[in-house]
């Protein structure tokens, strides 16, 4: 198939960006979206003779595992994070989802908390900072506990596992009308709050992580649920309700000073 690509090009965070149009032909319907971009980059490299304009350089985009696990890839394609399909990452998007002659608009995640590094690559370090603020269980040294010494209900185990499937790609932030990270934070809070090991620090954790989220410039949740619709791991919005419950409970009941800060306990 032959396609027209409108891609956001931006040399760095402090330089202005703009859309650049590229024509690409003979794309197989079986190749992935990232493979199509690889072919575009190869074409740009082959077409260049000596020093070229920035827009003729290969397009920068994030990717790593290319099998929907790592959460590195993330492109806003034709108005949807990870493109026109549900429950997938950009690397799992195939060109069969497009038609011959289509114009595809590719943009980076847009959020104050995700500054653009170059072209389609954004810095999602803000999500790591939220994890550093409390998304862990403090484990002191000692002997290895027996695997079955702490009983965990099947239901909670399943819910925690579902929440833990979040790969931190940032599609929730990208799709949210307010660039809110509530689905991400709620998944990270839930996966620990649901398990006995995580319950011990739950009240302190939820407050620290929400405080960090607020300070990083993410927006507020207004319950539009674009996050749930676009999450490649189909994390449920019920986690956001759990986050709210955990937070309200912690604010009302927790007496001690919250001491956790980004970088560790």
């Amino acid at each position: 198939m032959n396609l027209t690509l409108k891609i956001w090009r931006q040399p760095s965070v402090d330089k202005k960006g703009k859309f650049e149009t590229y024509q690409i032909n003979d794309i197989s319907a079986d190749c992935s979206f990232l493979e199509m971009l690889d072919q575009l980059n190869e074409k740009l490299i082959n077409d260049s003779n000596g020093p070229v304009d920035f827009t003729k350089c290969p397009v920068s985009f994030d990717h790593d595992c290319r099998e929907g696990i790592c959460g590195m890839c993330g492109l806003y394609i034709n108005g949807r994070p990870h493109g026109p399909d549900s429950g997938i990452t950009t690397c799992q998007l195939h060109m069969r989802k497009f038609k011959d002659g289509d114009t595809i608009v590719v943009e980076p995640w847009r959020s104050k908390a995700f500054p653009i590094i170059r072209d389609l690559v954004v810095d999602r370090g803000a999500l790591d900072k939220i994890i550093q603020a409390g998304g862990y269980v403090s484990v002191n040294t000692g002997g290895i506990p027996d695997a079955n010494s702490i009983p965990i209900s099947k239901r909670n185990s399943d819910l925690a596992m579902d929440a833990a499937s979040c790969i931190g790609c940032g599609a929730c932030v990208a799709s949210c009308a307010n660039a809110s990270a509530m689905l991400f934070v709620s998944a990270k809070v839930s996966q620990l709050a649901l398990l006995p090991q995580g319950k011990i620090e739950a009240k302190e954790r939820v407050q620290s992580m929400v405080k960090e989220m607020d300070s990083l410039g993410f927006g507020n949740c207004s319950n539009t649920y674009g996050c749930e619709a676009e999450c490649p791991k189909e994390i449920s919005k019920s986690n956001i309700a759990r986050l709210n419950r955990e937070f309200i409970g912690a604010k009302v009941c927790y007496e001690n000073e919250v001491t956790r800060a980004a970088g560790g306990a």
Binding site: Y76, N178, A179, S180
Partner: peptide
């Protein structure tokens, strides 16, 4: 705060 959280908007309107 929500408006300030996305200073540069998308070219394509959200289709989620």
């Amino acid at each position: 705060k929500n408006w300030a959280s996305r200073p540069v908007g998308y070219n394509q309107s959200n289709k989620s």
